[in-house]
Structures are given as structure tokens and as C-alpha cells.
């Protein structure tokens, strides 16, 4: 016996009531519960839909779906970070390594040429903070719009918004502006600082401009319901 459309909707509501907010996670759980319920109803036609659902849910253990959600979030963050690492490595291979070295050299030259170093460090940290925050704000607006239009939230989108957990690193940017403010920097120190700031900018650039759009494209290909707005 196949479940009806309203029963499937009931299962979506059930997962939502059990703290599964994300449509992509709900979908898999709904199908799993539905399969289990259908098998039970075939074996015992006198069973009600609600009792069969209760029995299937119990199989997830005392903490219900929490483990599945928690592990899914971890897995997606890991996937995001692996993608960033994959593209990051490209910047250390030919031909992109030339660009990386050029950025380091360029930043270093500016750092030693400008008399007041605080201007260079201040402007870089300001840009490294404001650009990602602006992009994240635009993304959150898009997610809100999708939620309003379709009543669906996607874990994929949330992972992109958090830059796979890398969003925490923006705290470092605030610190950069005040970093070693009054000390005199040697050339070796300025060069190390240039390397660090270029690598950090590259990681953020890859996350925001390469990995997040790629995830959305992959999601659109994978999930027929995903609104690629």
C-alpha cells in the first residue's frame, strides 16, 4: 500500500516538529519513514498510519533525528572545506602560482613603500571584512526570498552562508587592523605578513566566489525542487 500525498505532507510536518528545518534533510527522512510505514502496513493492514509512524521513528533512537542532522551539518562543512582546499592548492601550481607570488610581492612592495603602514593594514583588513559580510548579507537575503516563495530552507544554502564554518575566521580580520600596531616591522616580518594576508584573502575568495556558487549549481542539478534564484 502506497502512502497518499497528504500522508507524505504529514511526514514532512512530523520531521519539522522534530527539529528538522532543512528541506533537503527532511526529504530523505520522509522517504525513509514512508518506506518503513508502507512495509508495516503491508505486513499488518490493521495498523494505523500513526502507530506505524511512531514505530518507525523509534528506530532512530532516543535522540530522534538530532544525530542525523548534526552529522549531516558536519559532513557538509567538511565537504565545503575540502572543496576550498582543492581550489586553494591550484594557486600553488603553475600557472596560478605566478599570480599568488605576484600578489605577495605586490602587497609587500606597497607595505614597505607607504610611509604609514597602518593605512595599508587598515584598508586591507577593512576590505577583507566588508566584502565577505556584504556577500553573506546578499546570500541571506536570497535565502529569505526563497523561504518566502517556496516555504523551504536548504541546509546546503546554510553551509554556503557560513562558508563551511570559515565565517569564524572573519574575527581574525578585525584583529589584523590592530596587529603589532606600534612596533617597527622588519622586511622579513612584512614579507611574512604579506604571505599571510594573501593566503587568507585567497581562501576567502575561493569560498565566496568559487565554492559557494559551485555548491548551489551542484544542488540545483541534484535536487529538482531547489530554486536556483
Amino acid at each position: 500500500m502506497k502512502l497518499t500525498e497528504p500522508q507524505i505532507q504529514q511526514l514532512y510536518t512530523f520531521t519539522q516538529k522534530h527539529y528538522v528545518d532543512w528541506y533537503d534533510v527532511q526529504t530523505e527522512l520522509v522517504d525513509h519513514l514512508a518506506n518503513g510505514i508502507e512495509t508495516q502496513l503491508e505486513e499488518n493492514p490493521n495498523l494505523t498510519f500513526e502507530s506505524a509512524l511512531h514505530f518507525e521513528f523509534k528506530k532512530f533512537g532516543v535522540i530522534g533525528f538530532s544525530d542525523v542532522i548534526e552529522e549531516k551539518i558536519k559532513a557538509l562543512n567538511k565537504h565545503y572545506q575540502l572543496l576550498v582546499w582543492h581550489y586553494f592548492k591550484d594557486f600553488f601550481k603553475l600557472p596560478k602560482i605566478i599570480l599568488t607570488l605576484f600578489f605577495v610581492w605586490g602587497y609587500f612592495q606597497i607595505l614597505i613603500a607607504v610611509p604609514n603602514r597602518l593605512w595599508v593594514v587598515g584598508v586591507s583588513s577593512f576590505l577583507l571584512f566588508v566584502i565577505p559580510i556584504y556577500k553573506i548579507y546578499k546570500q541571506s537575503q536570497r535565502i529569505k526570498r526563497i523561504k518566502k516563495q517556496t516555504n523551504k530552507k536548504w541546509l546546503f544554502d546554510n553551509t554556503s552562508l557560513q562558508l563551511g564554518g570559515m565565517i569564524q575566521s572573519l574575527n581574525i580580520v578585525i584583529q589584523i587592523g590592530f596587529f603589532n600596531r606600534d612596533a617597527i616591522w622588519s622586511n622579513a616580518f612584512s614579507l611574512s605578513f604579506s604571505v599571510a594576508i594573501v593566503l587568507f584573502s585567497l581562501a576567502l575568495y575561493i569560498a565566496i566566489y568559487i565554492v559557494s556558487p559551485k555548491l548551489r549549481k551542484d544542488m540545483a542539478k541534484q535536487q529538482p525542487d531547489y530554486k536556483f534564484a
Binding site: 532512530f60 533512537g61 535522540i63 542525523v68 552529522e71 559532513a75 567538511k78 565537504h79 575540502l82
Partner: peptide
């Protein structure tokens, strides 16, 4: 195989490519 073990394993394998 319990549901609580299967899905985390599947998601992890998916994340690892």
C-alpha cells in the same frame, strides 16, 4: 543497520567524494 548509524555514514562518504 540502525537508521542513526546509516545516514551519518552515507553523508560522510558523500562529503568525502
Amino acid at each position: 543497520i540502525t537508521e542513526g548509524a546509516l545516514y551519518p555514514a552515507l553523508h560522510k562518504l558523500e562529503a568525502e567524494g
